[in-house]
Structures are given as structure tokens and as C-alpha cells.
């Protein structure tokens, strides 16, 4: 009988130890943070002292990670792929695209955002809001500007997903950028709210 119990106990341990937990989740906070840095860089915001931001200690992921460590079951169950949410911000493609976006912002886009000719859409792109104040030639130039900007933005979101080995994150990364473009828009700029209406910040 004792042998039977011993076998059961050992068997249970073996069974539990053989269990593999695969934690795969979209690192929303990290991607938000990555998008924030890239958008800030493109829009040439002054650096913000965010390193000691206490709020980040209590964000959802930190609490989740702490709870994960405190769960006794996790001491037994091997965590084969507890994915480290280390978002890659740099690759030749990302660097080139962000440089293009930054240059375009400084060369032309900022003026059109300031004048509400162009605004941020709710799908991470830009769109002509009101070209009425422009001459005809300039309207065509803005069309090209918007088309170029959108091509680069779409490519950036995809390259961000690929650089992080998760092409399937493209949509979530795009959403993180949507949030950041709007959050970091200057007062008076136009953006499209979730309902698709153009509003001024």
C-alpha cells in the first residue's frame, strides 16, 4: 500500500513537473511604450522624465507578473515560454521609416497639422481634413504627402510586428500607435475619434 502511495506521489510530481506552461500574451503596455517613444521621436517632443514614474510600478503587467511569481503552483510548473515583453524599437527598416516620418513631419506635415489641413485618423494614418485654404497645386502636393505618409506608417506598423517576431501583432501595434498619435497631438490639431468624427484637440 505504501509503495502504491509512494508511486502515486512520485507520479504526481513527475506529472506536474512535466507540465509546461506557455505564456503568450500581447505586451500592450510595452508596445504602448514603444509606440510612445517612436511617436515622440517623430513629433520631436522634448524628452519626458518618465524613468521614475511610480505609476508604472503598479500597471497591469507588473501586478500580473508579481502575482505569477507568488503563485505556489508556478514554483512547480515549469515556465517554458514566459515571454519577456522586450519590444524591439530598432531595425534597419524601422530606423529608415521613422527617419522618413520624422523628416516629413518637419518638412511639411507639421504645418498642415497646425493648419488643420491634415489630421490623424482613427486607424493610425493621416487624412486630408480641409484643403479649402490651399491652392490647387498645393492640394495635389498634400495628397502626395498624405499618401507617402500612410505608406510609411503602414510599413512601420508591420515592421514593428516583424521585428518583434510576431507578424500577427500588426493590428494591435497599429492600435497602440493610433492611441499615441492622438495622445501626443498638439492642441488644436485635428484627429478622428472612435466614431469617425473629426475633432480638434
Amino acid at each position: 500500500m505504501k509503495k502504491w502511495y509512494k508511486s502515486l506521489l512520485i507520479g504526481s510530481f513527475v506529472f506536474v513537473a512535466a507540465c509546461v506552461t506557455i505564456n503568450v500574451y500581447f505586451p500592450a503596455a510595452e508596445v504602448d511604450s514603444a509606440a510612445e517613444k517612436i511617436v515622440k521621436d517623430i513629433l520631436q517632443e522634448e524628452p519626458v522624465n518618465g524613468e521614475n514614474d511610480q505609476s508604472s510600478l503598479f500597471n497591469g503587467n507588473s501586478v500580473r507578473r508579481m502575482a505569477h511569481r507568488m503563485n505556489p503552483l508556478n514554483w512547480l510548473i515549469a515556465s517554458a515560454h514566459a515571454q519577456q515583453a522586450d519590444i524591439t524599437l530598432s531595425s534597419p527598416a524601422i530606423n529608415e521609416l521613422t527617419t522618413k516620418l520624422k523628416n516629413r513631419f518637419n518638412d511639411a506635415l507639421k504645418t498642415h497639422l497646425d493648419n488643420n489641413v491634415v489630421g490623424f485618423t482613427n486607424d493610425g494614418l493621416v487624412e486630408i481634413v480641409d484643403a479649402g485654404q490651399l491652392g490647387l497645386k498645393d492640394r495635389q502636393t498634400v495628397k502626395k504627402l498624405v499618401a507617402d505618409e500612410n505608406r510609411d506608417r503602414v510599413a512601420l506598423y508591420r515592421e514593428m510586428a516583424i521585428a518583434n517576431n510576431h507578424p500577427e501583432w500588426e493590428e494591435q501595434i497599429t492600435n497602440a500607435f493610433v492611441k499615441q498619435w492622438i495622445q501626443q497631438a498638439k492642441a488644436g490639431w485635428s484627429y478622428q475619434n472612435a466614431a469617425g468624427q473629426w475633432v480638434k484637440k
Binding site: S91, P92, A93, E96, E159, I162, A163
Partner: peptide
């Protein structure tokens, strides 16, 4: 292997 803009990326 991933070559972007004719440069090796990954």
C-alpha cells in the same frame, strides 16, 4: 533571412 531596402535586416 530578411533583407529590407537591399540591406540585411535579420
Amino acid at each position: 533571412l530578411r533583407i529590407t531596402n537591399w540591406k540585411t535586416d535579420r
